[in-house]
Amino acid sequence: MFPARIWREFPQRYRREAAICKKCGKRYFPPRLICAECGGRKFETYVLPDEATVVTFTVIRVAAQQYSDMAPYAIGIVKFDDGLQMMGQIVDCDVDKLKIGMKVRLEFRKVQSHDHHGVLSYAHKFVPKWY
């Protein structure tokens, strides 16, 4: 994958930078140029916390090409305390014990290797909270 495409997402993938509309307070991840609620164009950057709650999940058994080595793997949507949601893999877990409502911690992980020769893609995955 061409590196620019990976690079421009670093603020969101590395640091979980989200945006809050200065006019109406609506929050976005990833950030946007215009608020879909009030039309505001000015946003403040803030960082999403490192803990969230699972709102739904599945276990991918049949994966797309670049992920087939990882299958089966769990993937879910989590909700932060401020209401924003994020999708990501749920790792280091027993997939049979996953539950809606469980708490997870966000950990920095490698998401794609691009066939051992491309630029590595890092972002956050979810790990069941245990401490």
Binding site: Q89, V91, F108, V111, S113
Partner: peptide, 16 residues
């Protein structure tokens, strides 16, 4: 290490 863990990811988590 699982395949999604490398020196960079371990370093980031230790640093945090």
């Amino acid at each position: 290490p699982t395949p999604d863990v490398d020196t960079i990811t371990l370093s980031v988590e230790a640093t945090r």
